[in-house]
Nucleic acid binder design. Structure first.
Lengths: 232, 232
DNA sequence: AATTATAAGTTGTATAGTTGTATAGTAAAG
DNA sequence: CTTTACTATACAACTATACAACTTATAATT
């Protein structure tokens, strides 16, 4: 087998072992050619294969960068899970983990601007991108305001569609907080990531056109696979 | 007598007269074929005989290189690459293939007797004897214990000298394991040997006078050119 | 402190030269 | 008739070198 192909396989192995991480630069062609003891053109031929696969891309004068194939999840005024994913030509899917109706906690009541004696509906879902579970969401919704929410959501599996049926034609973000957490074993299992993998956690409120809060929710994103693109 | 055999004898005579010295290149096949007035394939046939004898080695795209014969490499309590070679009146040279700082693997941490969370420095070098690359070494050194190791080594190109500067005046082998491997195309290219040529692989630990491991390393020797002389 | 030159390093491209390999053909020897 | 030695040609793989285009870091200048 030709040398350039062997080098290609060697580099591919390094990449899959995360020796060179997405977004980072590879050693320069000069350094690589020394490492493998070949001419620069031979290295370039190996790299070309990886470029063709979309794993690497190069910038003249700058270097060779490992392609960041993390999904770019847009967060702005109007955040729509399915649409976000369809826009990037990926396939979205939502599955329900559990639901629960109980009294609102102090924080929940405050954020939903409801009386703390009122009941809320809690829904936990997993969002899949191309069949890979990468997003976990926990929603708190006023059960008094939307008593039929869960029944409809269970069929629609979409917040946007459910709200439309309930007469809310549009809604948007009041605010979004982003923090980082480590995945515990339960989350790791649900989200198909390793224990202690970094998770991006967003806490936010969606409100209707009258500025009344609809949901107070939290969403966890697997950091290795998703990057949040903040829009203004 | 056939032409190719006569050319072979003529070239062999030139080689033994040191007309072409070890480490140097022969004239190209094109030039030789013109000189002897034969087709390139005929020259190649002559050269093949010399390659079989281990006197010549060819590199695609580069040329044909003159090699030395078998070198005796001593392995005992105190193994010193340069000194070993100078003692036999040969010229040693070390070139760096690559260096890398990363977390220790389980085996590396165990052999260096360090915590597996610590970082290690990896250095890969090629050792040349009379300008013929024959030895490849991969060293693992605690980056915590010797944070400046690579900077110094890069200038000194000698483990002994580097350690002396770092305050380690002497070191010796804890143990040496010898196994055999086949050269893959990358190694064969680096070490100027044929694919599948046998390589002697030594795995060893060098420790200081307090018996603390300094380096956990592996060295590959081209079996055709180097024999290991084990001392007790 | 901010801006501008300068230098050094990186990738892209072009050209020429080298060895490896495959195929086809000729001539002589057994 | 088959094998061996040798020629002829072509292409693939790899090296060597040079230069252009571009980026980045550093030094110099304002």
């Amino acid at each position: 087998m030709s040398i350039y192909y062997q080098i290609y396989e060697s580099l591919k192995k390094d990449l899959s072992n995360n020796l060179y991480k997405p977004g980072e630069k590879l050693p320069s062609e000069k350094v690589l050619s020394k490492r493998f003891g070949v001419n620069r053109h031979t290295i370039r031929r190996s790299l070309q294969l990886l470029k063709n696969e979309g794993i690497l891309f190069s910038k003249r004068g700058s270097g060779i960068i490992v392609h960041d194939n993390r999904f770019k999840y847009k967060i702005g005024k109007r955040v729509r899970f399915s649409q976000n994913i369809l826009n990037e030509n990926y396939i979205p899917e939502t599955t329900i983990l559990r639901s629960e109706i109980r009294k609102a906690s102090k924080i929940e009541a405050k954020n939903l601007e409801i009386n703390s004696k009122h009941e809320i509906l809690l829904i936990e879902t997993i969002g899949k991108i191309n069949n890979v579970p990468s997003i976990k969401t926990k929603r708190i919704i006023s059960n008094k305001r939307f008593p039929d929410f869960f029944d409809i959501f269970q069929k629609q599996l979409s917040i946007t569609k459910t709200l439309k049926i309930l007469g809310v034609n549009d809604f948007f973000r009041k605010n979004t907080l982003v923090t980082a957490e480590q995945a515990d074993s339960i989350q790791a299992n649900l989200l198909h990531c390793k224990i202690n993998s970094p998770l991006l956690k967003t806490t936010y409120i969606n409100q209707d056109l009258n500025l009344i809060p609809i949901e107070y929710s939290q969403t966890w994103f697997v950091g290795e696979r998703i990057q949040l693109a903040l829009e203004n």
